[in-house]
């Protein structure tokens, strides 16, 4: 409840600041004006938002699936660790955002380049969180499994993977937080639809209030995605104490 009051206070301060400073709406529109645009252009905003939401969601799913698969492969195979793991680590030095124009060049202005961008940007946090979790299994559990004559496969599936779920859950949260960045960057670089596209278009035409309205929807989308991921993460590890509980 209190953070909501703080947010409302900040919005009020913004309104007063614009009014006192006499700023024109194409520089900084007051929240009341943004609200009006939100209502008037609701259909347009929702249509563009559905594109962006689709890109975020598909990118998140793709990144989670590919990242988890690679983490499990690294945990299971020493050869993969030796030949490919250093490469994955070093690849983090590449600013992924710089690849966005290339993705648009290869995959076009449609959804595919944004999905790829979002998947790419969350790929490493997912790999590293799950792989870390798989590596840090309680040695006591592994020894217990050894005295029980468990095969490496059974140990991986029944002990190491479930034991890594808390680490994976934090990876999912990070992924949900950064997936929108990938989608929006992709739209800025080159797109024909989406909230990021709408923002660049309306700013270029001096329709700053519409850009702010798109930004508002984008924030809500990001929050919704994070909340969904957080719920999923909690369901994955019911035995684990959570932050804020």
């Amino acid at each position: 409840m209190r953070p909501l009051v703080t947010a409302l206070g900040l919005i009020a301060a913004w309104e007063i600041l614009v009014w006192l400073a006499g700023l024109p709406p194409y520089i900084l529109p007051p929240p009341s004006r943004v609200g009006v645009v939100l209502v008037e252009r609701f259909d347009l905003l929702i249509e563009q938002a559905s594109w962006t939401a689709g890109e975020m969601f598909l990118g998140l799913v793709l990144g989670l699936v590919l990242g988890s698969a690679l983490a499990v492969i690294f945990a299971a195979s020493a050869a993969w660790r030796r030949w490919a793991l250093p490469l994955v680590v070093v690849s983090q030095a590449i600013p992924v955002i710089a690849i966005a124009p290339l993705l648009v060049l290869w995959l076009g202005y449609g959804m595919a380049s944004k999905v790829a961008m979002a998947a790419l940007i969350i790929f490493f946090p997912v790999v590293s969180s799950l792989y870390d979790g798989l590596r840090r299994t309680d040695p006591g559990w592994l020894e217990l499994a050894r005295t029980m004559d468990a095969s490496p496969r059974a140990v991986l599936l029944q002990i190491r993977l479930p034991a890594a779920l808390p680490a994976f859950a934090s990876g999912v949260r990070i992924a949900a937080a950064v997936a929108p960045i990938g989608a929006v960057i992709g739209e800025w670089v080159g797109a024909s639809a989406g909230l990021g596209f709408l923002m660049t278009q309306s700013l270029a035409r001096g329709q700053t209030p519409l850009a702010f309205a798109a930004l508002t929807i984008l924030c809500l989308l990001g929050l919704a995605l994070y909340a969904a991921a957080d719920r999923l993460a909690r369901r994955l590890v019911p035995w684990h104490p959570h932050q804020g509980d």
């Binding site: 020894e143 217990l144 029980m148 468990a150 140990v155 002990i159 779920l165």
Partner: peptide, 25 residues
């Protein structure tokens, strides 16, 4: 083997923990 710590797996029920050896095999 019974170690100093109970080493129960937190995601398995008490019954499944007791049957852990059979699950793993």
């Amino acid at each position: 083997y019974m170690a100093q710590r109970d080493l129960l797996l937190p995601w398995l029920s008490v019954l499944d923990n007791v049957l852990l050896g059979y699950r793993l095999r």
